[in-house]
């Protein structure tokens, strides 16, 4: 009796375990199904390289290229700010800060990770955006640059937490070896700890990039949503995510525009899949 009950429970647990695989596969299949419908009506090469996104005109064109540029520009900008600061902060938290400071800092980083992205967007709208407009004297502050700054804050917790884990997991004896040879603590950190933790730090950056590319709400509120190829980081841009979010509400379900947005989703899915796969590879290497 008890034996059968246990067996049933163990079967249920097994099914819970396999559910993740089913979900990933079904997400992919749903995206693929709608996208294939789109590619039957619209040339896939024109979709990827097309420079115009005019879904509502009489002769609609669905060129995703400007949005890809927009996503990468914002992501790249945020990385340039967040990666050096994040990795340095991780070093400080893990290696230098005294125990109680370490605990407080970790709590604050965790807290930052849970600030909703709409709140970050709101603050961006009323601080960075007017500042950029006035400081650089440009027609609008809704630019890739403003988006990059706000997103840098948003992605900071990811980079700090995962780099910190990597640095923390470097065995203590490595440091002792260097210190015993008369190196200062900083030399030991720079020459040995950083080198050993490198795979983990790369993983942190990749996971950060994955989050940045997928970020939607804050980007939509700050970057201006202009679907043309940006001239510089001070131009308004529109990301792939913002396009889906802004247009899906207004499309006729199951028409070509609807399917086109699923195709954009598929592109996003593939990019983040690759980025996360690389991150996972480096995380595995760290152990």
């Amino acid at each position: 009796m008890k034996k059968t009950k246990n067996t049933i429970i163990e079967i249920i647990i097994f099914m819970c375990g396999t559910l993740s695989v089913i979900f990933v596969v079904s997400i992919f299949i749903f995206l693929l199904k709608e996208s294939l419908g789109f590619f039957r009506e619209y040339n896939i090469l024109k979709f990827i390289t097309g420079r115009n996104w005019y879904p509502d005109s009489n002769e609609p064109s669905f060129g995703i290229f400007p949005m890809v540029i927009g996503s990468f520009l914002v992501t790249f900008g945020a990385c340039i700010i967040a990666v050096p600061i994040g990795v340095m902060a991780a070093l400080y938290i893990s290696e230098i800060a005294p125990k109680y400071v370490h605990d407080i800092l970790k709590f604050l980083v965790e807290l930052m990770a849970t600030i909703p992205s709409v709140v970050i967007g709101l603050i961006g709208m009323c601080t960075i955006v007017p500042f950029v407009k006035n400081f650089f004297n440009i027609p609008t502050g809704l630019t890739a640059f403003s988006g990059s700054i706000m997103l840098a804050f948003m992605v900071m917790p990811t980079i700090v937490t995962i780099s910190e884990d990597a640095i923390h997991s470097v065995p203590w004896k490595y440091r002792e070896g260097a210190l015993a040879l008369g190196a200062t603590k900083w030399q030991a950190i720079r020459r040995i700890v950083l080198k050993e933790a490198r795979p983990g730090i790369i993983a942190a950056i990749m996971l950060g990039i994955g989050r940045l590319i997928g970020e939607t709400m804050a980007v939509m509120m700050i970057t201006g949503n202009s679907a043309s190829i940006p001239k510089s980081i001070f131009s308004p841009v529109r990301t792939m995510t913002a396009t889906i979010a802004a247009e899906m509400g207004e499309v006729v379900k199951c028409d070509i525009h609807y399917k086109a947005l699923f195709a954009v989703g598929l592109v996003l899915f593939i990019i983040t899949f690759i980025v996360n796969f690389i991150a996972d590879f480096f995380l595995g290497k760290n152990k």
Binding site: L31, G214, E215, L268, N276, A279
Partner: peptide, 10 residues
Amino acid sequence: VNLAGVPSIV
């Protein structure tokens, strides 16, 4: 790993 990385809009 990949479910965790799929963008929320997707």
